[in-house]
Simulated assay, not measured.
Amino acid sequence: MSRYKALSAELDPCARQLVERLRQLKDHGELTMRHLAAKTGYSAKSWERYLGGTSLPPREAVEALARVTGADPVPLIALHEIAADTWGSGRARTATAEPRPTTQKQEPITLIGPTPPHATTPHATTPRATTSPTTAPAAGRFPHIHIALTTGVVALAVALLAALLLMLRLDEDITPAAVAAPPSTTAASPSPSYTCRISRIGGRWSAGINQGRNDEIVYGATGADVAEAQCLLRRAGISPGGIDGMFGPLTLRAVKTFQQREGLVVDGMLGPRSWKALRG
């Protein structure tokens, strides 16, 4: 299972739930970032941001991951719509400024005159409080004006930040290709699509993709032979994931399950005996 960085505490709960569900699907399918890029058309760097919680994945990326892993896309799409409405709401914080207290400077006043009977020195001094004519009235007599101005500035800054986040999110939804492939990276070409045309020819099952070849294929292989095997595995009642012509983790698991069910050597390789069992 992949190790992920802890999600930010400022992330909205709906967005957090979406990211955690996408992480679970990736780990369950034993997919690497390279596999995700090859199967979904979104670059590995983009998936690092989506699964790291720093960028909301486009709806098409969520649907592609569900299709690759064989998951039901309806709950994921519903969760994505909720997360899209609330994305970025937890990142804005308002601050309340407190008025700065003003200090008063005391100056001694010398009283010159006859010494009172109780005085012990010829000159007695009493403190006299002086206030700054520029700062004391604003902070002391009118503190509410200072608080209102500070609150207004903070509210304006928060509104500008929210508008910026909304513009970024709308730009990401409208142009998923620009988000999926930054200028420094090249988006992977989408995998070719195959169509299963299951038929019985000469007592042998065929999907009509590789013209009946039984060449040996192993994990990591790609092409029509892999797509043919995926169609026949699906006909046998074992899901290999998508029919994409890529011998990935899901197809490997399906091959081993089929070999175990047919009493063959469970090595995950499609050789002559496995092909013969698939074609029945």
Rank of each mutant, 00 (worst) to 15 (best):
M1T: 15
R3E: 14
R3A: 15
A6L: 14
L7V: 09
S8C: 05
D12H: 15
R16A: 07
L18N: 02
E20D: 09
R21F: 03
R23A: 00
K26C: 10
H28I: 07
T32W: 04
T40I: 05
A44C: 08
K45M: 12
S46H: 12
R49H: 13
Y50P: 07
L51R: 06
L51I: 08
G52H: 00
S55W: 10
P57K: 02
E60S: 14
A61Y: 03
E63L: 09
A66I: 02
V68G: 03
A71C: 05
P73F: 03
L76G: 07
I77G: 08
A78S: 14
L79H: 09
H80N: 02
G90C: 06
R91A: 12
T94L: 14
A95T: 14
T96E: 12
A97V: 14
E98A: 14
P99M: 08
P101G: 10
T102K: 09
T103Y: 08
L111N: 10
T115K: 15
P116W: 02
T120C: 10
T121P: 04
P122N: 11
A124L: 15
T126G: 13
S132V: 07
P133R: 13
P133T: 12
P137T: 06
P137W: 02
P143D: 03
H144V: 11
H146L: 13
A148I: 01
L149Q: 09
A155C: 03
V158G: 00
V158L: 05
L160N: 13
L160D: 13
L161G: 11
A163F: 05
L165R: 11
M167A: 14
L168C: 06
R169E: 12
L170K: 10
P176H: 00
A178I: 04
S184Q: 10
T185V: 13
T185R: 08
T186K: 04
T186E: 04
P190L: 03
Y194L: 00
T195A: 14
T195F: 05
S199N: 12
G203S: 01
G203N: 09
R204Y: 02
A207F: 02
N210T: 03
G212Q: 01
N214S: 14
D215I: 11
D215T: 14
E216C: 03
E216R: 14
Y219I: 11
A224K: 13
V226K: 01
R234P: 01
R234W: 10
A236W: 02
S239Y: 06
P240Y: 02
G241R: 05
I243W: 04
D244K: 05
D244H: 09
G248T: 07
P249D: 08
L250A: 11
T251H: 01
T251K: 01
A254N: 08
T257D: 11
F258D: 02
L264H: 01
V265F: 08
D267S: 06
M269R: 15
L270T: 01
G271C: 00
R273N: 15
S274T: 15
S274Y: 00
